[in-house]
Deep mutational scan, measured.
Amino acid sequence: TTYKLIANGKTLKGETTTEAVDAETAERVFKEYAKKNGVDGEWTYDDATKTFTVTE
């Protein structure tokens, strides 16, 4: 399944996707990606669109 991340960070803005077996796995991947890019904010997830959003 393809999951999408929308990053609304102070230093990183944009979108990326990952293939994962479930939302929990995708969330781990995206949180690691955000951490590597210095983004720390509020996370939301929309199951209907398989989209995570992080906003600083």
Rank of each mutant, 00 (worst) to 15 (best):
T55S: 09
E24T: 10
T51R: 03
E56M: 08
E56N: 06
D40R: 12
T55K: 07
T25A: 13
D22H: 04
K31T: 04
T18V: 15
E56T: 07
A34G: 03
T2L: 14
A20T: 05
E32S: 08
T18L: 14
F52N: 00
K50W: 05
G38A: 05
R28D: 04
K10W: 10
V21F: 13
A26P: 00
E42Y: 13
T51G: 02
T1P: 06
R28M: 10
D46G: 02
D22P: 01
K4P: 01
T1H: 13
D22E: 04
D22S: 08
F52C: 00
E24P: 10
E42K: 11
D47W: 08
E32H: 08
A20L: 03
N37L: 14
E24S: 10
R28L: 10
W43Q: 01
Y45M: 01
T51P: 00
A34Y: 04
T18K: 04
T16Q: 09
T25M: 11
N8Y: 15
K10I: 14
E32K: 07
N8P: 05
A23K: 15
N8C: 14
V54R: 01
E24N: 09
Y33T: 04
N8T: 11
K10M: 12
A7S: 11
G14A: 13
D40Q: 13
R28C: 08
G41W: 06
A7E: 04
T49F: 05
I6Q: 05
Y33G: 02
D40F: 14
T49I: 06
T2F: 09
N37E: 06
N8F: 14
K50H: 11
E19F: 15
T2D: 04
T17R: 08
D40W: 14
T18M: 12
E56R: 05
T11C: 15
T18D: 02
Y3P: 01
A20M: 03
T55R: 07
R28Y: 07
E15V: 15
G38C: 07
L12Y: 15
E56L: 08
G41Q: 02
F52T: 00
T55A: 06
E19I: 15
F52A: 00
V29R: 09
T44V: 09
E42L: 13
T25I: 07
V29P: 00
F52G: 00
K31L: 06
V21G: 09
E24C: 13
K50A: 05
N8V: 14
T11M: 11
A26F: 01
T55C: 07
T49E: 05
A23R: 14
V21Y: 12
E15S: 09
T25P: 02
D46H: 06
D47Q: 10
